[in-house]
Design a protein around this nucleic acid. Sequence first.
DNA 1: GACAACCTGACC
DNA 2: GGTCAGGTTGTC
Length: 273
Amino acid sequence: MPELPEVETIRRDLRPSLLAARLEDLEVRLPKLLRPGVQDFRERLLGAKLRDIRRRGKLLIFDFGKNLMLVHLGLTGALIYRQKETGDGYPPHTHLIFSFDQGWVFYADLRQFGWLEALPADRLKDHPFYSSLGPDALGLSWETFQRRLAGRRRQIKALLLDQKVIAGLGNIYTDEALFRAGVHPRRSAASLSEEELRRLYEVLQEILERALVLRGSSVRNYVDGQGEEGRFQEEHLVYGRKGKPCPRCGTPLVYEVVAARGTTYCPHCQPLA
DNA sequence: GACAACCTGACC
DNA sequence: GGTCAGGTTGTC
């Protein structure tokens, strides 16, 4: 589900409630989600006090001091906080229940593609997923964006989706940014003029910030740290709108697979040539 | 690059 | 019944 704005919204929701909270218990209903395994996970984290929650791309990093917990929400993962008193029933597809002295956190995940890993803090820099991530898309400088994309021959959509190039973008924000920049998703990055690349950079920052204000996009399953939906889907111009008229020119929006992902764009406003 | 794999559920 | 789904990884 979640791309950068959704993951960041969850981080901002959980952080104030959980800072300095001690993890007292963990109920594991679906052990396969945990790395390296339930036993190591418990040994590293139970009894520890949470110092901070950070984010890099779509990855959440719970800082317990000596140890860290990495959380990747996959396609449908959610972290929902509740104070102990309000606990009446679990969210659907709850697989893990974290009991802190300041409340509960439920990990729910319909499709079970997410993962959580406990590891010593000094091993983060060698972590295969973490260390492969490119710079975070939010607040990325134009110079870095340009350096990472300009002149590369791959399709622009594939590059934007590649977490090693830039971390945090997924299918929604990629399609929305390409539409707003007027760039066809199949174009080679090298074919973009500097002006086009600059425009892509500008609209990308705009939609990420706007999506954060609206607390993410709830297309299907996404909910924030309180279990509430976001509202940026109300401002989607192309994502999920195949066949509907382009909001700019009225041409029916086209849906095709690009970079192995379903892609919606306007063939008129985003010309290939 | 294309495709299958990991899963469950919603929609046509 | 078939198709599609906010992600990532591993295989040709």
